[in-house]
Each structure stands twice: as structure tokens, then as C-alpha cells.
Design a protein around this nucleic acid. Structure first.
Lengths: 151, 151
DNA sequence: AAGCAATCCTAGTGAATTACTAGGGATTAA
DNA sequence: TTAATCCCTAGTAATTCACTAGGATTGCTT
């Protein structure tokens, strides 16, 4: 029940873009640097986020990536769903409309358990936006002047 | 963010033992049969559950496994923690007392997010017991007369 | 027009994990 | 003594993870 690096790094990257929302396109090289992530790997993740409509890209020199929407309307759930797949601890209760469920679903009590787990996970992730996280960040102890982050 | 087969099969097996609580030791062969799981694989999972004190074993002919405690005091969280490890979407917020956290934890807002997710997951899993699941099972549509389950 | 900064896309890869299988040893009721 | 059962370890094919590499394309700047 762990996130992969895709979800973790992707959340880091989206938060980095949120912090600089309004500045125009941010080159991935900068995000990779401040977040200490591999640029080439990050590129793949951000590419998925772009295809999903969460970020926009500007090609060419002076280009980069920027959030496609305001930080207040992008939730953690949006990001996690793109990078980790639909939310749910098992395939048969995943939160996608066209998911095939097993035939004995009506009599399957484990399914109820997994559904409740899914719902509580989705509830948390869908209720927290990038703007929320930035607001909370201000309350935490200040970060280094460079803005660089390790973990 | 998916469970592995260990968690899923383990939950199935524990529920199977719960249904027959009070009958004395149940051989694993029977559990494997009714739950359509590999006996050899199940053996490994149940072995972990035994070492964790959730089931007891009786060796020799007429032996088998039985719940070490009443179904009402064994939670889904107990089972999942044994088979999937401590609950938490990332290592640094896992619900173990002696977990090492990263150095920039005080300024890490992602960490707050992951903590909330962990708490909501743990809350659900720790609040549902095997007895609860059996009670809900009665309300669902009846299962086949053999008691065999597919999913 | 040339150069360069940047995104875009695909393929490859070593390491780790998963989901088992196999096989033998130990214990105990019948 | 036999058979049923748990106990333990090792091996393994397949998959997934976490990247790296490299080239194509785009478009600002000079």
C-alpha cells in the first residue's frame, strides 16, 4: 500500500509549479534542480500530467511547463489518479466508471471493506488542493533561501 | 496504491477462519479449497499471521489453524499490517513508532498530506473487525451451499 | 539563417518485487 | 507405523520500477 515514485515525485513537481503559478512557463530543468529529481524521469511524469490536462507546456526556448488550472482547483486526487491510476486498494473497487467487477460481488464482504477504504482515501485526496498545501506551507518552518528541497 | 495478493488472500483466509471460529483447528487445505487459493502459497501467508499472533496452529493429523483471538477483536488493520507492512502511503509517515523521518520533515507539506491519507486509511481498517464483516455478510445475498468462493 | 533552449517521444535496462512452486523435515492423532 | 498436517527454505518466471539514453521537433533569440 505504498505510492510509487511517480506519485511522490509528481506531487512534488506539481507543488513546485503551483508555487510559481503566474510566472509563465517554468523549464523542467529548474523543477528538477530545486526538487532534486532526475530531469529525464520527471519529463515522463510531467508528460502524463500534460496529457491528462493538469499542466500545459510551451515548447522552444523560454518554454517550460505551467499549471493548466489554478492551484485551488487541482486536487491531490487529480494528480494521484493520473500517475498511480484510479484510487482503490484492489482492482474490483477502483473508482472508474467502466471497471469490471467480479461475478460474486453481491456476496463478497471483502469488497465492502475495500470500498470503504477506497472512499476514505479518495475523500482525503479529493479534498486537498495545491492551494491548500501552499497555504499550509506558510505555517510551517521556513525553508532555505534557495528554495531547494531534499525529500 | 494497490494491495498485493498477500493482503487480499490473507484477508480471505482470516475471514474463512472467522466463519469457522469455535470449530477447532481447520486444516489449510480446506481453506485453500473453499477460497480457491494455492495451499502452498497460503501456507506462507498464514505462517506470518501466526508469528504475528493472529492465528494459532495445531500440528499433526487433525491439526490446522484457528484464530488466536475472537473475531470481534481482530481488525482488518491487524491483518493488513502483518501482510503488507505498516500503513502509510510513503515510508516517512508509516505508522510505526521507530520510523526514521527525513530531515526536512518540519518544512515538508507533502508530509502533511500523506499523514492525513495514512490516518484515514488506518481509521477505516482499524475500525472494522472480522466479526463486523461476518455480520454484514449475513445481510448480503446468500452464497452457494458449498461455501466455495471465487473472488 | 543559425544556434540553442526547451519540450516531445521511444526504447532499453538493471534491480527489485511479486506470486508463486517445490521439496523436504517435524509433529502428532489414529 | 502411517498419514495428515504444519513448518521452513530455496528457487524462479514474470512483472514492475525507476530510471538512462538519445534523438526529433519546436520556436525564441541573435
Amino acid at each position: 500500500m505504498k505510492l510509487s515514485t511517480k506519485g511522490r515525485y509528481g506531487m512534488r513537481a506539481m507543488l513546485a509549479l503551483a508555487r510559481r503559478y503566474g510566472e509563465g512557463p517554468i523549464p523542467l530543468k529548474e523543477v528538477a534542480k530545486t526538487e532534486s529529481l532526475s530531469e529525464a524521469y520527471l519529463e515522463q511524469l510531467v508528460s502524463e500530467l500534460r496529457k491528462a490536462g493538469l499542466v500545459r507546456s510551451v515548447r522552444g526556448a523560454q518554454g517550460g511547463y505551467l499549471l493548466a488550472k489554478k492551484p485551488a482547483v487541482i486536487t491531490a486526487g487529480d494528480i494521484i489518479r493520473v500517475l498511480e491510476g484510479p484510487i482503490g486498494p484492489v482492482q474490483c473497487v477502483v473508482d472508474l466508471p467502466d471497471t469490471e467487477i467480479c461475478d460474486c460481488a453481491e456476496s463478497c464482504v471483502e469488497r465492502l471493506l475495500w470500498q470503504r477504504l477506497r472512499d476514505s482515501m479518495a475523500q482525503v485526496l479529493d479534498s486537498i488542493t495545491l492551494a491548500d498545501l501552499m497555504a499550509e506551507e506558510k505555517k510551517l518552518s521556513p525553508i532555505s533561501d534557495t528554495g531547494d528541497r531534499e525529500c
